[in-house]
């Protein structure tokens, strides 16, 4: 224990957020599990209790795995789930391919330029997410700027279908999550000592070889962090596939939203949520193991 803080301060500062997290972060997840075992029911609340009294007044377990059976049996859910993973993975890869050179360019820019450039990259992050997605609708729709330009140039004879495609979803994902990819990459690359690369070149490496053998390996923790920060929210994303993907692009976040708001089936929504949780536990745990191993090597 530090000599400069008192036990009383400790108790308050630990107790308050801990209690809050137990009530508003842990308990809700328990409730998802609980309600995923219930059945839909017209009324308030719109699901059945897990424990009920039977005719003899005995407590009766009324939980059911029916929702999970439905989710596992109906190809809609499984397709949406796999599609989410695929779209999130491709979006992450695209963000990495675009974000890495950008982060590299900023990290190697003259010292006075780095902060303004970084600021410029992060600025869109501070403007409304919904507005940023909305802006792309204006560009991508049949009468939008891109199609008008293409028509005017005579490159196409009729408008391309850009909006309500997977392509539009990728654009939206990369556009919205690029700062998440850039920031950890930049933090890593900026710390990378330029003299390491000079040393490698002094020892006979070409700039390309120095890049692949020195810069890239040392940037790996930043790559992992960046990919995680993009992939995790992308899997459960709702707004982008809803607004840019249209009816054709199926993602699990959208399915959950529709189950809840359109079908009003809370128990099935909860079961879908459990499925998404499972999909996220695996990559996060993998990344954590990788990070821990990296940290172990470093020390």
């Amino acid at each position: 224990m530090s000599a400069t803080t008192s036990p009383a301060i400790h108790r308050v500062t630990t107790g308050l957020p801990f209690l809050w997290l137990i009530v508003f972060a842990a308990l809700p997840l328990v409730l998802i599990v609980k309600i995923s075992l219930a059945q839909m029911h017209l009324g308030v609340p719109p699901y059945t209790p897990l424990l009920g009294l039977d005719d003899a007044g005995e407590n009766l377990w009324r939980g059911t795995l029916a929702n999970y059976r439905l989710v596992a049996g109906d190809s809609l859910y499984l397709d949406a789930y796999l599609n989410s993973l695929r779209i999130a993975a491709i979006s992450t890869a695209l963000a990495l391919m675009i974000g890495f050179p950008m982060a590299y360019a900023i990290a190697r820019a003259p010292l006075g330029w780095r902060t303004p450039l970084l600021f410029l990259v992060l600025l869109p992050f501070w403007t409304s997410f919904l507005i940023r997605v909305y802006a792309w609708i204006g560009l991508l729709r049949p009468t939008g700027l891109i199609n008008s330009t293409l028509l005017w140039l005579g490159l196409v004879t009729e408008p391309l279908k850009l909006l309500n495609t997977e392509f539009a979803v990728f654009i939206g994902m990369v556009f919205c999550y690029l700062p998440y990819m850039l920031l950890p990459l930049y933090a890593r690359l900026e710390k990378l000592d330029a003299s390491l690369i000079e040393a490698a070149m002094d020892l006979g490496a070409t700039p390309t070889l120095a890049f692949w053998r020195i810069t890239v390996p040392l940037a790996v923790p930043g790559v992992i962090a960046g990919c995680l920060l993009v992939f995790v929210p992308a899997v459960g994303e709702f707004v982008i596939p809803e607004l840019l993907g249209g009816a054709d692009v199926l993602m699990i976040g959208k399915v959950l939203w529709n189950e809840f708001f359109t079908n009003r089936d809370w128990p099935v929504s909860a079961a879908v949520a459990m499925l998404v949780l499972l999909a996220l536990v695996v990559p996060i745990a993998t990344a954590q193991v990788l990070m821990a191993r990296k940290a172990g090597e470093a020390s």
């Binding site: 630990t14 957020p17 801990f18 997290l21 137990i22 009530v23 508003f24 972060a25 842990a26 308990l27 809700p28 997840l29 409730l31 998802i32 309600i35 609340p45 995790v232 929210p233 899997v235 459960g236 994303e237 709702f238 976040g253 959950l256 939203w257 809840f260 809370w266 929504s269 909860a270 949520a273 998404v276 949780l277 996220l280 996060i284």
Partner: peptide, 27 residues
């Protein structure tokens, strides 16, 4: 446990955070 709970809102998809909190409020 504390650190784990603190990280959950960061990694959970918004749809799940929203749904789970709604279920809490209703319960």
């Amino acid at each position: 446990t504390f650190l784990g709970l603190l990280a959950t809102p960061l990694v959970l998809p918004e749809v799940i955070t929203g749904l789970s909190l709604l279920l809490l409020f209703v319960t």
